[in-house]
Design a protein around this nucleic acid. Structure first.
Lengths: 194, 194, 194, 194
DNA sequence: GATGAATGAGCATTCATTCAT
DNA sequence: CATGAATGAATGCTCATTCAT
């Protein structure tokens, strides 16, 4: 990658970071191009040099985080661990991301209202891919006899639902430390899957 | 209540129902005053006779549903049932509301972005009140020895998080019937609390 | 038509008149909604109460004039006149419109660049309909032995082309009076068709 | 002219050719500096090294074509031919240019909307110069007794108007071949002038 | 000479809100 | 009470133009 390409890539990242920030503060619909640019001391016109339109920024934001999450999760799946430990690690990792990326991660919730038809399929597919890693961990656990579940998919929904929800109430200043939350969540879910 | 007052109250209800409907269809940000009025064969100007502004409609919508939910939940809490059965019923009821009221219920998620400071405190207080009924059911179950949980509040968060999430993926046309979902969710959570 | 409907119709007409004026002054691409509104002492937002978007204003402008022209021309065709006189009258009428409606009439020239696919077909069809009235007059003249032309369609193109061009150079303050222009044009074309 | 000067001149020509092309494709208002540069594999910034601004490109484009046309037309006027043949040749040549240069030639139509005051006078003067060659041919024909016209200027307007209009409807894929069109047009006009 | 990057002014469009009637 | 009409502020996006490197 040439110097220039790296500069562009860096700038794009900056923009996505700024966008994430603004979205976190105001929500997607209230995040204006102006806001995103101002955060970077640019003018909104400049954003269009790097991204085609607002949706592309949003999409990239989302993609960036989800891709990274997927990578981590896939790595966990590949590790040589008991299913219990794998799930524990997966839950903790997911919680970690959901808390750190709060709003952007939250975009996953209603893609139909935020993305145009061009992107929506890919979005949903990626989301499903991510979810399927949890399915695989559960399936593995069941096969190994570590887990007993009446419906695997539903179990995954419960786990992901509950962990996604954490961003609604979690605050770094709150009574619970992040690590504590992760431990308890993992404990409960393992009990549920046992 | 005079006849006129009753008429006004009726109209307000109509408006809230329409607002709920439109919000469910399009999401809050895409629900225009025009849409809400059109559904009732009124003009948007008339809405301002009954409500101060859009936020007040939203607030009332939210309040209406949450109040009703609270009432149901409180009734369940008062019933003479084992904690297991109480929780089962509570979960099913909550799921039922979350599915039926989808979008409006979803407003709970990020009140800071939707409500001005005037309303936000009250909103959060009410939400907490609702949640506290679950806390009470859990506490009761623990006292009676039916549940064993390391952290009551966290257990409640998990339950509510997972059940709120259901609206993200549930569709009446989908593979799972509502009753089936309710059963499985209840089963998993009871296992978790046991 | 109720009072209100008439009021709306009147306002729409006003807007179209204003749009015509502004388009005449600045050309279509340089005619902003702001300009059109300002001319009527309205704000641009109000225009959207009457028309869906800028293109619809443009389209209506165009349609209004072309429809009126078509009516006049059809009437001329129906009159009991020699083909010579009919053509003379048609040419004069067309010149009259082309001069009076200058810019708006000029929109006919490149519809592909100005109209979206939704309207373009109808636009072109209407333009062709109008042209076909000239074809009929020529054909009639040929049948009656008043005209001799090697190619009817080409003759019509020449006549319409030349008369449309008149708006490029004609000015009320110029050396030639409108009536004089009309007479000379008619004379030349009749000689051409004879 | 030094080597460097020649290089610059060459580049300017390239730019004008590209501009013509892009304008022909999209129309002037939709021809962006970006488009013009892209065609030459340059960046739009570079265009400003050769031309002060977009208008100057447009102006030069227009000037280039009109100058070439004038040269051809002047040559025709100088030829030793009957007025009939001269006019025939002139019409064919004009049609040829109008068809080939379509959009750029079309700029002539409303110079006031496209050019600033600095250029407009010169534009109009050049356009008139071009037209005057037709006047001279007609005048010559009248003097020689080949043509009989009641008003020379008006005859020229009709001829130029009709031939300019040809670009509105002519298409290489259409039913009429270019040569056929030229022949018929010449025939009609000569009949008109006879 | 040329490029990448940025600017800033402008425009169509949307929509909550207001208010005379 | 309700409506029709209008407002105005906001927003995404485009593009000619500039300029440091």
């Amino acid at each position: 990658m040439s110097l220039r390409e790296r500069k562009v890539a860096k700038k794009k990242e900056d923009i996505l970071r700024s966008a994430s920030l603004v979205i976190s503060r105001n929500g997607y619909q209230n995040a204006t191009m102006e806001d995103i640019a101002a955060e970077l001391l640019m003018t909104k016109g400049a954003l269009y040099y790097y991204f085609k339109n607002k949706e592309e920024i949003l999409y990239s934001c989302h993609d960036l985080i989800l891709s990274a999450a997927m990578e981590q999760m896939e790595a966990i799946y590949q590790e040589e661990l008991s299913s219990m430990d794998k799930m524990k690690k997966a839950i903790k990792t997911h919680l970690d991301i959901a808390i750190r990326e709060k709003e952007v991660f939250n975009l996953i919730v209603k893609p139909e209202q935020l993305f145009s038809e061009d992107n929506i399929e890919e979005i949903i597919e990626k989301r499903d891919q991510y979810a399927r890693i949890f399915d695989k961990i559960i399936a593995e656990g069941v096969k190994r006899g570590e887990f007993t579940v009446s419906d695997k998919k539903m179990a995954r929904m419960i786990i992901l639902g509950a962990t996604n929800w954490v961003q609604v109430w979690y605050s770094p200043e709150g009574k619970f430390k992040k690590e504590k939350v992760e431990d308890i969540y993992a404990e409960y879910f393992l009990k549920m899957l046992a």
